[in-house]
């Protein structure tokens, strides 16, 4: 999943990327990707892990909060996967006073978990 995104990013324009990824991702995702995405979803929804639903509406999750923006159309908002992943790892990079948890530096999620969550979020 991650590698696919990188490849496309370097070969097509941003505008084309948005349209193209939106249509093709579900079809091109391999079995391994699908398993990673499923794992990422679990980490994201687990109250003791990401607990992203505390603040964000995410498709497939219930009782979501609304402190942060709904996580939709992620590829349009983050043409660059790494930028989105950096936001998830440490939101203070973009907003020093953010309420969002510094998941990486505060070791709330491991590097692997951040990668899995990011892959899941990028499908939204």
């Amino acid at each position: 999943m991650r590698r696919t995104a990188h490849l496309i990013k370097t070969s097509v324009s941003v505008a084309a990327l948005i349209g193209c990824l939106g249509m093709t991702t579900p079809i091109t995702a391999s079995a391994a990707d699908a398993a990673a995405i499923e794992k990422g979803k679990k980490v994201a929804f687990d109250r003791k892990k990401g607990n992203c639903l505390a603040c964000h509406q995410i498709e497939g999750g219930s009782l979501a909060g609304n402190i942060g923006p709904p996580l939709v159309a992620m590829k349009a908002r983050f043409p660059d996967y790494d930028k989105m992943k950096a936001q998830i790892a440490d939101a203070r990079v973009n907003n020093p006073n953010t309420i969002m948890i510094p998941f990486g530096p505060h070791k709330v999620l491991s590097a692997e978990e951040i990668e899995l969550v990011s892959q899941f979020i990028y499908t939204l």
């Binding site: 979501a64 609304n66 309420i99 948890i101 505060h106 070791k107």
Partner: peptide
């Protein structure tokens, strides 16, 4: 805390917003 959130984050900046169902 590990989650790095201030009293003010929840009760000054975001009152009226929902954190989960609260």
């Amino acid at each position: 805390g590990q989650l790095n959130i201030a009293c003010a984050d929840c009760h000054f900046y975001y009152p009226g917003s929902k954190i989960r169902a609260d």
